[in-house]
Structure formats: structure tokens, C-alpha cells
Design a protein around this nucleic acid. Structure first.
Length: 229
DNA sequence: GCGACAG
DNA sequence: ATCTTGTCGC
């Protein structure tokens, strides 16, 4: 069983990231786009009632049909701190992932991987603790910058750290629609990660994996709240 | 010191 | 993330 240690404070959380960062594998290209099983994970919160619900949804990459789903609920283990999102999201996400009846070839996270203040975002953390290839698709540029990609679907531009390093890619998944921000997590190349993100977004800006996981974890949260009464 | 800041 | 109805548009 894979778990994420809940740090006592932010300093300990950063120390854990600095330690695990060395375990990220960046020299594999990962599974080819358009085939295999792709999992999407997401989390919903009710901080008021100290409730968290996570969902994992596995799609057939060739058809984007749902192959498997699972959810998990728990209590909030860590506050939202930019740069430390993994400690808030992963405990419940891992529980959901482990409940899946299949092992995905790639996990798509809602957030960043290598594009992170210490080079160890949510997607890297998930990849390292599960051993699975992983990548991140975020909805805004966080602290990074990029040129506006061309308007056509599939156009992209490098996502840059303050020091000029390329940490990901702004990717237009729909013509004329605000891009998403793709970064590598573990055991997948940036080119492949972007190809996956594009293949998973035939109709909407956000990949189907994330959309499915998002609606499922919201449903799971509502059910967890209802179960309280 | 102040502001910015994935979800 | 979350608070939140109707509404504009493909």
C-alpha cells in the first residue's frame, strides 16, 4: 500500500519534497498516446466539515470509454499551500487509485509535475510513490510564464521558470480557447505528455480523464456529506 | 517587508 | 478548491 506522509509543518513538507525529488525518472518516454489505459484523478473538498473525496477514472485511450472508476473519502490532512498541494491531495487520491481493479499505464493529475518551485509538483510526487508514469495538466500558469501559443488546436509554447528553464508547455487543446499547462510527472517525456493531453481533449479544453474524475469526486463528496446526517 | 501563488 | 441562477451560444 502506497501512502504519503503528512508533514507536521511546511518546513518538513519541503524537506520531504527535496528528498523525493531525486527519485523522479525523466529518461523514459512513457506509454505511446492513443493506446492503453489512462487514469485521471481529482479531489473535492468540504473544509467546513473536514471532508475530502477523491476519484480515479480509467479510460481506454483509444476510445476514451470509461474502463474503471473508484472513489475514496477522508479528512483534510493538510491546508492548501501553493507548492505543497501534494500533501493535501495525495493521501485520498492514492486510496482511490489502489481501489481500482486495473493498473493504468499513465496517471493524469490536475496540477503540475516538474513545473514547481522545487521541481517536485503533485504529478511527480504521485509518480514516485506509485511508480506509475504520471503527468500534470494545470488550468493556469502558476508562477510560470510563456508566450501565447498559436490559436490552432495543438499549438504550444514553452512554459518557463523565472530562470528561463523550460518546465512544461502551454498547450492549446481547443481552437481559440485558453491553453492548458502540461508538465511531466514521472517516467514520461514532455512530447508524449502533450500528445496524451491533446488526445484526451477531443472536444473540451480539459482532458476527459480530469473531467470524469472531477465530476465523480464531486458526487462522492456529496454522498460523504449526506452520509453524515 | 510585500505580493504572487497548482487545487 | 468554493460561494452560485440564469443565460448566451453552438
Amino acid at each position: 500500500m502506497t501512502t504519503v506522509k503528512t508533514p507536521a509543518d511546511e518546513a518538513e513538507a519541503r524537506a520531504i519534497q527535496d528528498e523525493l525529488r531525486g527519485l523522479v525518472v525523466l529518461d523514459e518516454v512513457g506509454p505511446p498516446p492513443g493506446q492503453g489505459l489512462i487514469a485521471g484523478v481529482d479531489v473535492a473538498y468540504d473544509d467546513e466539515r473536514d471532508l475530502v473525496a477523491a476519484a480515479a477514472v480509467v479510460l481506454d485511450a483509444a476510445t476514451l470509454e470509461v474502463v474503471a472508476e473508484s472513489t475514496a473519502a477522508g479528512s483534510v490532512s493538510f491546508p492548501y499551500v501553493p507548492g505543497l498541494l501534494a500533501f493535501r491531495e495525495l493521501p485520498t487520491v492514492l486510496a482511490a487509485l489502489e481501489d481500482l481493479p486495473v493498473t493504468p499505464d499513465l496517471v493524469v493529475c490536475d496540477g503540475y509535475g516538474l513545473a514547481h518551485p522545487r521541481g517536485f509538483g503533485l504529478a511527480c510526487h504521485l509518480g514516485v510513490v506509485t511508480g506509475l508514469p504520471s503527468m500534470g495538466v494545470a488550468k493556469n500558469p502558476f508562477t510560470f510564464t510563456c508566450e501565447e501559443p498559436g490559436a490552432a488546436r495543438g499549438e504550444a509554447s514553452p512554459l518557463l521558470a523565472p530562470d528561463g528553464a523550460v518546465v512544461g508547455r502551454a498547450l492549446r487543446t481547443q481552437h481559440g480557447i485558453k491553453p492548458v499547462y502540461v508538465s511531466v510527472g514521472h517516467r514520461v517525456s514532455l512530447d508524449n505528455a502533450c500528445a496524451h493531453a491533446l488526445a484526451l481533449s477531443p472536444r473540451f479544453r480539459i482532458p476527459e480523464t480530469t473531467r470524469r474524475a472531477d465530476s465523480l469526486c464531486r458526487r462522492a463528496l456529496r454522498e460523504a456529506v449526506d452520509a453524515l446526517q
